[in-house]
Design a binder for these strands. Structure first.
Lengths: 151, 151
DNA sequence: GTTTATGCAAACAGTTTGCATGTAC
DNA sequence: GTACATGCAAACTGTTTGCATAAAC
């Protein structure tokens, strides 16, 4: 994990930017979270430490511009941020539309097919996001029960 | 296209909801747009017609709950809405991170692989979103030029 | 010491809510 | 005529901006 923190420090220094406690702190929060974090969630976690919320916005904007994080959809239309390669393994999300549970999927294996699909457009692919939405086993059971009661 | 409008009318009536000019109007805007529309964009387009922006929010919330639209990420972390099956063909997005151009991809062919990946979790898959990010030919050229000048 | 990052306060934009009015059924 | 949808205004939350202070290099 310290190895990743060095990655961030190098990325900052390469651009003539400074390594500050606040930037490291936001980075560690993102690193330790299994799920993408919304800005309000980050602000809340961080307010406890005395850090200003304006700073959270600025750091997140910076990290996005640097390619350290990127925004993804979590839940119903809200945006969260998560680390991207090389700061974190490539992965996708399996999201339950019933309870908003999120499972990370690490065995992507979609690159080849994606290359094929995109080939005619002559794009240089940087990354891809996949979100798979469905019902988890628990919510399937709930739904089945609701139907047998309701109808 | 009128066929789709009937789909919406049926979906509304099935739920005891009313078919109103405003709901049809928002639906037509979504149907005629090649790209997902953000709420501010919808509000702006609609303000010209004299419709209140509160109504736009309420209709979009309703359409989301009904499964007529769903939110997707467009550009840098902003959310747009687009119609989903059966109101529109299943498709994905190829997005240029340079100029924000969006291309719709209709030949998905990822279902089988996605089913494989998700199989261990016993989810019932409802739908999936794919966003592929890269540089379009023009922005690749720009980048190449910038590098030969800069370095 | 210089330049960049942060804190603070105010302004701003986007979104939500309650209630009165209008409209689809 | 009744129940639902809309308009309006106000409240509220999330986000951005400018400037003074503090910290990294």
């Amino acid at each position: 994990m310290a190895a990743h923190e060095e990655l961030l420090q190098n990325a900052l220094r390469q651009r003539g930017l400074r390594v500050t406690p606040d930037r490291l702190h936001v980075y560690r929060l993102l690193e330790s979270s299994p799920l993408p974090l919304s800005i309000p969630a980050l602000v809340e976690e961080i307010h406890a430490t005395g850090m200003n919320q304006t700073t959270v916005y600025r750091i997140l904007e910076l990290f996005t511009a640097m390619g350290v994080v990127h925004p993804v959809l979590i839940g119903h239309g809200s945006v969260g941020y998560e680390l991207i390669p090389p700061f974190r393994h490539h992965h996708h999300h399996l999201v339950c539309i019933g309870c908003n549970e999120v499972i990370d999927l690490y065995n992507c294996q979609l690159e080849h097919r994606i290359d094929e699909i995109v080939e005619p457009y002559h794009y240089k692919i940087i990354y891809h996001d996949v979100e798979i939405h469905g019902l988890c086993p628990k919510c399937q059971a709930k739904e089945a029960q609701a139907q047998s009661n309701g109808d």
